[in-house]
Computed example of a mutant assay.
Amino acid sequence: MGAVAKTNETQAGDGDTRRKILLILLERAPVIASDIAEQLQLSTVGVRRHLDNLVEDNLAEAVNPRQNPYEPKMRGRPAKTYRLTDKGRSIFGHEYDSLAAAALATLREVGGDQAVRQFARKRIEAIVEGITPADVSDQSIEDTAKSLVEAFSRHGYAATVEANRNGLQLCQHHCPISTVAAEFPELCEAEHQAVSEILGQHTQPLATIADGHGICTTNIPLTPIKHS
């Protein structure tokens, strides 16, 4: 009985670790095994075992490492990075996709493209409601970007923001409406427009989950918008 109980405890612990790794892949991908191990205070070997199992179950995939152009190139082979597959993302839910797509299709039939754009605008306004637009200072822009990240994350986007050489980079590691947004890009367009208006900055969409990328990435150069 003791051996059976110990085996069950081990399996339960493995299941908990597996869920934590999936969540890290959702929020931070692409990520290397050693970074996951450091965050969870586990051995890199153990984390790689979990990652191999996730890849085998088609919940995660290994992707080609990307060298940061602003970091010095290192000798040797770059560490393998991992991200979730569509199946892995589905664990975190894409509720009511079919219903939402059908509703928007009907809205387009009845009211045309403008009606869909108006709906998308109202949706994002509800998400960012209460966020005070940034002033011209870099600190205000960064603080407002963090408020946007918190608002998006409360709505299931697993968002992050980081400073880069030329400004800020806003990432959404999960999109709860990606399936619908693939059919109705007005949803993404409204998000980008709202972010630009609140930050008072131009935005440069670099990648979207709706288009098949692993992360929605928006570059925000810290250059104020000039109003005529």
Rank of each mutant, 00 (worst) to 15 (best):
S98Y: 15
G93P: 01
V116R: 00
V128N: 08
V116Q: 04
H94N: 13
T132V: 15
R108F: 04
K146R: 11
A134C: 08
V128H: 12
G93F: 05
A102T: 11
H94W: 09
E142N: 04
Q139T: 12
D113C: 11
F152G: 02
A120V: 01
L104Q: 06
T106H: 13
I141F: 03
A126R: 08
L99A: 15
A126Q: 13
V149S: 00
I124T: 09
K146E: 12
F152P: 00
R123K: 14
V128R: 06
A102H: 02
I131F: 03
S153M: 07
A120I: 03
E125D: 15
S90W: 04
E109F: 06
A101L: 12
A105G: 15
A151D: 09
E150F: 03
F152L: 05
E150D: 12
V149P: 03
G112K: 09
Q118N: 14
I127P: 12
G112W: 04
T132Y: 07
L107I: 12
I141M: 00
S137L: 13
P133H: 10
I91Y: 15
L99E: 11
A134Q: 04
R123D: 07
S140N: 10
T106M: 12
R108E: 08
I127W: 00
P133A: 10
G130H: 14
S140W: 02
D97F: 00
K122E: 13
K122C: 09
E142M: 05
L104A: 11
V136L: 12
T132G: 02
S98C: 15
V149H: 07
S147I: 05
Q114C: 10
R123T: 10
A134W: 00
S140Q: 02
D97W: 00
V136N: 05
G88H: 00
I131L: 12
R117S: 11
A105H: 11
E125W: 06
L148K: 02
L107Y: 03
E142R: 10
G130S: 15
R121T: 07
G112A: 08
S153G: 01
I131H: 04
R117F: 13
E95T: 09
T106G: 14
R121C: 11
K122V: 01
G111A: 08
T132F: 05
R89T: 13
S147Y: 02
A126Y: 02
K122M: 03
A126T: 01
E142D: 06
L104H: 07
I141Q: 02
R89M: 10
D138W: 06
S153P: 04
G130A: 15
G112L: 15
I124K: 01
D143E: 08
D97S: 09
A101R: 06
